[in-house]
Design a protein around this nucleic acid. Structure first.
Lengths: 166, 166
DNA sequence: CCTTATTATCTTGACGTCAAGATAATGAAT
DNA sequence: ATTCATTATCTTGACGTCAAGATAATAAGG
């Protein structure tokens, strides 16, 4: 029956709440708690590998967005914003850092002087190309203990859940 | 067959990678990407409700940990640390803020002068008691579009995945 | 007793993020 | 043409977080 042999950290939290506040139904807390903890762990693992490539995960997000947009690897800050769930101030800051490091340049748009284009430099392209290989390999490693069926089912459920918010 | 009718944000990212880098297997990226986006959305929803209670989610984490530990609602910073996935510096900062706001007090431990106990004040207890009701109700709302079967299955898969990291 | 290692907490400095608002260019309507 | 709203980006100030190290008390071994 039970393929779960062991109480995990979240089980202990739920047990405490059930003792202290038996009136609360904490089932959703279990799901949301595990989701958050898992996301934190995965985020740290991802960050660690990208750091070895000399990139923060924030920096990688921007470079990868430019890379996968295809040649000539140029997008406006507004377009980058749409794809990354961060505020405009955060994006400005990210671009500033990447520009200082020589991974991107700001190119003035002659047709609309309000806007600029953020362009991958050669150095930026080479860096992200290597980094994405390491990143994808790492993602495989991180999910390797799930069976193919579990991965498919998890993806289905996450997609369904995520749809409520997008 | 397909109960997923619509391409979501992550599908678009994966499609870009498949076009630009068909050599990469991006299935894990789909799962991890959805997990991260979902966690970000849920975190923001949770934060919004706690803010209405006058608490950041960081502050609530600490108060809730003290509350569910049971009377007399006192734990050392070290014990709080074990339960919250943050660094010691972060915990010191959180306690400082909560103490300034009058939700907790630092009590010296006469048996070990290296350590202190963080104790919920009356105000802190009353605040967290109300906040946890709102928080749990919010968690129900956030997960209400998943069926009971989906919730159970998602919890099972998250538990299994999380076990790799804890 | 000393000395040394360990434990518990706090401090410091650097980042990444956000909300709110500033700046500046463009578009729309008269 | 002029005004007004909109769009695009950047600036500012405040937070929360972390890694690394500082401080101080206790424990353990000789």
């Amino acid at each position: 029956m039970s393929e779960d042999r062991k109480l995990d950290h979240v089980d202990k939290i739920l047990a405490q709440w059930r003792r202290e506040r038996p009136d609360l139904d904490v089932e959703p807390m279990g799901i949301l708690g595990r989701l958050k903890r898992l996301s934190t762990h995965l985020g740290r693992e991802v960050e660690a590998v990208l750091m070895q490539q000399g990139l923060s995960s924030s920096a990688f997000d921007v470079l990868a967005t430019l890379r996968r947009a295809g040649s000539p690897h140029r997008l406006s800050p507004g377009e980058l914003l749409e794809m990354t769930m961060v505020s405009s101030g955060t994006m400005t800051n990210r671009i500033d850092q990447l520009e200082k490091a020589g991974y991107v340049e700001r190119i003035l748009n002659p047709e609309d002087r309000r806007s600029v284009l953020i362009a991958l430099t050669e150095k930026g392209l080479a860096t992200v190309e290597t980094a994405v290989d390491a990143h994808v390999a790492n993602q495989h490693r991180l999910s390797q203990n799930l069976s193919a069926a579990d991965k498919a089912e998890l993806d289905r459920l996450l997609r369904k859940f995520l749809a409520d918010f997008e």
